[in-house]
Lab assay of single mutants.
Amino acid sequence: MSDQEAKPSTEDLGDKKEGEYIKLKVIGQDSSEIHFKVKMTTHLKKLKESYCQRQGVPMNSLRFLFEGQRIADNHTPKELGMEEEDVIEVYQEQTGGHSTV
């Protein structure tokens, strides 16, 4: 019986991991920090939209990076291997420009 009891508790931990929340720091170019608590399985588009709304800027005017890689709207913290207190960097999107060649 103890084996049966242990097995469901392991499964519960697996389920808990799926719905687990982590805190992420979003740091802007001006070094301002906003902290977000997100589920591991939530699409990061929600975090990006919330950040842009707080900053009063359109979402397409900023780019969000985690460990140097651009974050897509459909990425989740779990897919990117994010952990508690990880940092997302935000930069002004640069458009235009010309070749110097």
Rank of each mutant, 00 (worst) to 15 (best):
K7F: 08
Q92R: 13
N74E: 10
I71M: 02
Q53S: 15
G56I: 05
Y91P: 02
R63V: 06
T76K: 01
I88E: 03
L62C: 14
Q4V: 06
D12F: 10
S31T: 08
M59R: 11
I34R: 06
R70S: 15
E85C: 14
R54M: 06
K48P: 01
S50T: 15
I22F: 05
E33L: 06
K16F: 11
D3F: 05
G96W: 01
L65H: 14
L80I: 01
K48T: 00
V26R: 05
V87E: 11
M40Q: 03
I88G: 03
G96P: 09
E20P: 15
A6D: 13
A6K: 08
L65P: 03
R70V: 12
T41Q: 15
E84I: 00
G19I: 12
R54L: 09
M40E: 12
S32V: 15
L80S: 01
M40L: 14
E49N: 03
Q94F: 09
T41M: 14
L80D: 04
S2H: 13
E89G: 12
L13D: 13
G81E: 13
M1G: 06
I71G: 04
C52A: 01
H98G: 10
Q4N: 14
I34E: 02
E11K: 12
H98Q: 09
L13T: 11
F64I: 00
S2C: 12
S9T: 12
N74Y: 14
G68I: 00
D30R: 10
K7Q: 11
Q4R: 12
E79N: 06
N60I: 03
K16C: 08
S61A: 09
Q29M: 05
F64E: 00
I34G: 02
E84S: 13
D3S: 11
L24V: 13
E5D: 13
T10F: 12
T100N: 08
M1F: 07
E85A: 13
F64V: 02
L44I: 04
A72L: 14
V38P: 01
F36E: 00
D86K: 04
T76H: 00
S99N: 10
K78C: 06
R54S: 05
V57Q: 06
E18H: 11
K23H: 10
E85D: 13
Q69L: 07
P8K: 05
I22T: 14
L47E: 02
V26K: 04
T100D: 07
Q29F: 02
T41C: 03
K23D: 06
N74S: 14
Q53M: 04
P58W: 00
S99P: 08
G28Q: 05
K46Q: 10
G14C: 11
Q94R: 08
K37Y: 00
R63A: 03
K39M: 00
C52T: 02
K16D: 06
H75L: 06
R70F: 05
D12H: 12
M1Q: 07
K17D: 11
L47Q: 02
L44V: 00
D3C: 04
Y91M: 06
V87W: 06
M59I: 11
H75N: 13
D12A: 13
E89D: 09
L47P: 03
D30E: 08
V38F: 06
V87R: 13
I88M: 05
V101E: 07
V101N: 07
F36G: 03
T76S: 09
F66D: 03
E18M: 12
V101A: 10
C52P: 02
R54K: 06
K37R: 14
Q69Y: 07
V87A: 13
M82H: 04
G14M: 08
F66I: 04
M40D: 09
S32C: 08
G97I: 00
V90F: 05
K17V: 15
K48V: 02
D30K: 05
E5I: 00
T95V: 15
I27G: 03
K7P: 10
E85R: 14
R63C: 06
A72V: 11
Q4S: 14
Q53T: 15
H75E: 12
E20C: 05
T41N: 04
H35Y: 12
V87Q: 13
Y51E: 03
K45W: 06
L44R: 03
F64G: 02
A72Y: 13
S32P: 04
E11L: 14
K16Q: 10
V87P: 02
V57Y: 14
Q29D: 00
Q69V: 05
P8M: 02
D15I: 06
G96V: 00
M40K: 13
S61R: 07
S31A: 15
K39L: 07
H35M: 10
E18T: 09
E89P: 00
C52H: 04
S9H: 10
M82E: 04
D30A: 12
T42A: 09
S9N: 15
L24F: 04
M82R: 03
H43S: 08
K7A: 08
A6E: 08
Q29S: 05
N74R: 14
